[in-house]
């Protein structure tokens, strides 16, 4: 305990002596963790949007206007018997028109001027979450449905969902690469600052060695210095991230919710915040240890 106190008081004094370099290291760490945090926030929210959209992804079976009640019944049974749907819902021509009017009030007057109702009746089928990935089964189902009497067309929005997922995955990989590079840069910067500090503490280290101080005692201050820098960097990054996030949400949050149809945007969950803080300290610790290891 007393040793820890010594490590950290030495580290603070040493950082203060080299404060401009220390600030540089802290900012570097902060930038690295800021980018990491930025990707995490983006990922958290995209994840939610994607899952919400997937939730509402459905397969529409459009029916011929002249489809018979028998045909309707067999289509319904076919959907029910496929084992793929979690929910299905019949939308009549009138209901389709009403929905269109509700969604697009400006265009509704035009539609009203048309002779008759141009919207087909349909079954809206909600696919079960667990079969959404099973492309083959869903494709087979779509083909089978298309061929049924009374069915005009089957519409399934899988393409763009797959594409969206690919984009999210790609972003995650790119983000990962950038974050790893920034983390390395941050650790290296810390190591440099600690090395600088080591030079300014050379006398002290020499005396420590001459009196036979344990290695931990000689090295502790370096590691403490790294941890302090890393922690400060992480804190700075989190503050900047939170400030940026809440400012943007205040300004654009409502628009984003409307555009995506999702819930309101969220910041990082507490455990992730804690991990970022610890991550910064770990980076700093590594940087400090790299230098400390050479001291014997």
């Amino acid at each position: 305990m007393r040793a820890l106190q010594y490590f950290f008081s030495e580290a603070v004094a040493s950082l203060w002596r080299a404060r401009s370099a220390a600030v540089l290291a802290i900012v570097t760490i902060a930038v690295g963790l800021f980018v990491l945090g930025f990707f995490l926030v983006l990922n958290t929210n995209l994840q939610r949007v994607v899952s919400q959209w997937s939730e509402s992804a459905e397969l529409s079976v459009y029916l011929n206007d002249d489809a018979t009640a028998e045909q309707l019944k067999s289509v319904d049974e076919m959907v029910a018997g496929s084992g793929l749907s979690s929910r299905r819902h019949y939308l009549s021509k009138a209901a389709a028109l009403a929905r269109f009017k509700g969604d697009f009030p400006d265009l509704a007057s035009t539609a009203g001027a048309l002779s008759g109702n141009p919207f087909p009746a349909s079954f809206e089928v909600q696919l079960r979450t667990d079969v959404r990935g099973a492309t083959g089964a869903v494709d087979g189902f779509v083909t089978a449905m298309s061929g049924m009497p009374g069915v005009a067309d089957v519409h399934y929005d899988r393409e763009w969902l797959t594409r969206l997922n690919a984009v999210v995955r790609g972003m995650r990989i790119a983000g990962g690469v950038i974050v790893v590079m920034l983390a390395l840069a941050a650790a290296m910067t810390v190591a440099n600052v600690v090395r600088l500090a080591a030079a300014s503490r050379r006398d002290e280290i020499e005396i420590m060695q001459l009196v036979g101080a344990p290695f931990a005692y000689v090295r502790g201050p370096f590691v403490a210095e790294g941890i302090l820098q890393g922690g400060a960097g992480a804190l700075l990054a989190l503050l900047a991230l939170a400030a940026g996030f809440y400012a943007l949400r205040l300004r654009f949050g409502a628009a984003a919710v409307q555009a995506t149809g999702g819930d309101s945007l969220t910041f990082l969950p507490v455990p992730v915040v804690a991990i970022l803080l610890l991550g910064g300290m770990t980076l700093g610790c590594i940087g400090g240890y790299v230098v400390a290891r050479r001291v014997r």
């Binding site: 006398d203 002290e204 020499e206 005396i207 060695q209 001459l210 009196v211 036979g212 101080a213 290695f215």
Partner: peptide, 19 residues
């Protein structure tokens, strides 16, 4: 062992080596 050995020594230099 070098550490332990040095703990049994005292050293004084011309330039004092004070912090």
């Amino acid at each position: 062992q070098v550490q332990a050995y040095r703990r049994s020594l005292g050293f004084v230099f011309q330039d004092f080596k004070l912090l």
